[in-house]
């Protein structure tokens, strides 16, 4: 299980290849990559985080996923700082003996990263800057689990 919080860009394809080649005993690998959308002439996304809390909070979410599903391995990468449209923000990869556990654990990790990992997104656009508000549906998503 690995958690990486970084400002540097990452290559999602290369990460997936390395992860898949190092995992043993898994019959399924699922990956999700979040990418900065260019809606409303967005110029960039600025992601703030709570450095002392971010990695422990994500590790706790991964540990919770590991108690719910039989995972062979998991990887979470999440960036902070300024990101341009089209750049990868974050990535979740899960490996499990069978596909359903890998899919469900990845979905669970995404839902919890959205609203329980201490990141805050600010949109930088042509009309200035605006903090992204959390959606009510983000909380509803947690109730699925």
């Amino acid at each position: 299980m690995a958690v990486r919080v970084q400002s540097d860009p990452f290559d999602a394809g290369a990460e997936l290849t390395v992860f898949s080649s190092s995992v043993s005993g898994a019959g399924a690998v699922v990956s999700f990559t979040g990418i900065v959308r260019g809606d409303n002439d967005l110029a960039a996304l600025e992601i703030e985080h709570y450095q002392a809390m971010t990695t422990p909070a994500i590790e706790a979410i991964v540990a919770e996923a590991s108690t719910r599903w039989s995972l062979s391995d998991a990887l979470v990468i999440h960036r902070h700082g300024r990101l341009a449209v089209g750049e990868a923000i974050m990535m979740v990869v899960t490996a499990a003996p069978h596909r359903r556990a890998a899919f469900e654990a990845a979905d669970f990790l995404m839902d919890y990263l959205k609203s329980r990992a201490p990141f805050w997104k600010k949109e930088i656009g042509p009309d200035g800057e605006m903090w992204v508000a959390a959606k009510g549906s983000d909380e509803d998503d947690l109730k699925r689990w």
Binding site: M110, R116, W120, A134
Partner: peptide, 9 residues
């Protein structure tokens, strides 16, 4: 720490 609802992912 005090902050708004988180918007990760």
């Amino acid at each position: 720490a005090f902050f708004p609802p988180m918007t990760g992912g």
